[in-house]
Design a protein around this nucleic acid. Structure first.
Lengths: 336, 336
DNA sequence: CGCTGTCGTGAAACCGATTTCATGGGGGTT
DNA sequence: AACCCCCATGAAATCGGTTTCACGACAGCG
């Protein structure tokens, strides 16, 4: 559109100024170890002076590597309901940038295995892909099979051998439930999130495990199924109260439902934490600001993003890598 | 790393199959109007059959355009406190993708005008840049001067001639304050956000304007300065109450401070909305779930992102474009 | 002392599209 | 009928690095 201030230095200039061939310039800039140190120094000096910046498109074309990593986010509204992916993305981006990689943001419907996103990724435009909110595994499987490095945020279904990073949903839920029990709660209930997704399922499993470790089994009626929304928390709490089981503790699979549940509890004339103690999950800002403030399981979201980036880098380097489960931490506040 | 399934079709194959030259293939694919319709059809047919996907790096190298637009986000923690940029980014990304552009996510410290980000952007790696949270205008100014299309989210300081998109902070605040007055509030106070940033300042101005339109001037003591945090809302509300001015209405510059203020009000033994009515800003999820639920000024964040993308596209097309102010909407709930 | 193996180096091919430029044909003008 | 101009088209140059390959020098070996 407009004139570039300086017309960019090229290898040809550098080579001339440093008295070497372009091939050697390339070797120096790519850290090839078998270049004479003198020449390395000469080239680096010239590069410095000219303020040379590698032309990525040219490099990509010649090498076949784009240095681009895609973050793929499914565009099914979940974007708006998930407050985390922004933070995760920023962590990913920072780590990748430190490694000379660029982060491409792909927000689109990942539904069809033949949609634009699929084509795009299969087109070899990117060197790797990081997926969020994995609903459809087909595409990811295919990409992985084609040899594209893929890392996933959140535990995928089945025993697929994807590399993923996730918070310890199971452990967090277990700890939360045990905390309630330790506070003297005899009948701890739970409101689950979407248990089709693994995160919701794992949180339920953690809850159940707490009962097992106490040597009992949770009454089925102590389990209510929500969908992570405020409304569902409220509704399901009403349901639990109507069952009249003497619930005195609640583990909600996220903070929003915990807040909804508390609203229902207070509407029923009961008090938190006196009559019923409540623990949430996520340690969102709402857990801190709602009254009563909510005891919640904190996930280290920034770390999650950084880990995703690090795994991707190691995978690109050819390392064999394992999934990572990040620890959670129980933050105790007024509600339990 | 691994073998690509199919080795990608190239112009050379298409040209051969369609019985035309590579130049013509390029013309067809780039929508050059002066190609014989028959050949256009022939090429398109072959392209379809081969599932051809343009090699972006090659195209970028040859044309000098990267088709990459950077979203630049300053990495000074604000990322974590601003729940909006994720939504904005997704809107931007979607719009750009529909126009064959890619979105590059740049999360880094934009502090120094000579930092990596600056170098990066000036290196001509991207065709345009979208900035969030503009603290330092120096870099942006320089880029704009160099001819790079730049669009900014949020109103910049001064009368700079940047193109930006912003919500109508002034209008929203005005409406909120007038709403309080219409509800019978005689002494409406405000807790501002960071008034160094334009958004905070505009919201304060809107508040003041409401008084002006009523033919009076707001008492200086009705203005308290917060920083958008829950704690500051609580503190500043205490300050306001201590001033003992008979405040019966509050416009908080965001929901979080509104919630903090409500906490302080209730601690003082007063009730919302009976004794003091409260209006927030943002219409965040917290406005809906807190008790009492909060009347708040809604911004259309998705639209904001989409508009950013659209402006960028028009700017790339060479159009002269004007800043856009998006309307806000008052959502009335229990608190006022 | 000659032969082979290794290593650093540069020339040149190459990546895949875009764009310039030359060409030839067709339509319009006088 | 001769001339011009315009337009569609293909050949070829080009973008800026990367990588292969061949070459010469030098070290080690017998």
């Amino acid at each position: 559109m407009a004139a570039q201030a300086k017309p960019r230095a090229t290898y040809s200039e550098i080579a001339k100024a440093a008295g070497v061939s372009e091939a050697t310039v390339s070797r120096v800039l790519n850290g090839d170890p078998r270049v004479n140190p003198d020449r390395v120094a000469a080239v680096q000096k010239v590069v410095e002076e000219l303020g040379y910046k590698r032309h990525r498109a040219a490099a990509a074309l010649a090498s076949g590597r784009s240095n681009l990593i895609a973050i793929v986010i499914d565009d099914d509204l979940s974007v708006f309901s998930d407050p985390f992916w922004a933070t995760i993305s920023s962590g990913v981006s920072r780590v990748l940038m430190q490694n000379e990689l660029q982060t491409l943001l792909l927000v689109a419907s990942v539904d069809s295995v033949d949609g634009p996103v699929a084509h795009y990724l299969q087109g070899g435009e990117v060197d790797g892909a990081i997926f969020f909110q994995l609903h459809k595994e087909t595409l990811v499987k295919r990409l992985a099979k084609q040899g594209m490095p893929v890392v996933i945020s959140g535990t995928p279904h089945g025993s697929s051998d994807f590399v993923y990073v996730d918070s310890d949903n199971f452990g967090g839920a277990l700890q939360a439930t045990k905390h309630l029990m330790a506070q003297g709660c005899k009948r701890v209930a739970t409101i689950t999130g979407d248990t089709v997704a693994t995160a919701g399922n794992q949180r339920l499993e953690g809850f159940l495990q707490a009962y097992r470790e106490r040597g009992t089994v949770a009454n089925k009626n102590l389990i209510a199924h929500g969908d992570y929304s405020f409304e569902s928390g409220k509704e399901q709490m009403r349901v639990l109260l109507e069952r009249d089981l003497g619930v005195d503790g609640l583990f909600a699979a996220n903070d929003l439902m915990a807040i909804g549940a508390i609203a229902a509890i207070e509407e029923a004339g009961l008090s938190v934490p006196n009559d019923i103690k409540v623990v949430g999950f996520d340690d969102s800002i709402m857990a801190q600001t709602s009254r009563p403030s909510i005891t919640s399981v904190r996930q280290d979201i920034v770390r999650l993003g950084e880990t995703l980036g690090e795994l991707m880098i190691r995978k690109l380097a050819g390392e064999e890598i394992e999934p990572v489960i990040l620890p959670t931490e129980l933050v105790v506040r007024e509600s339990a």
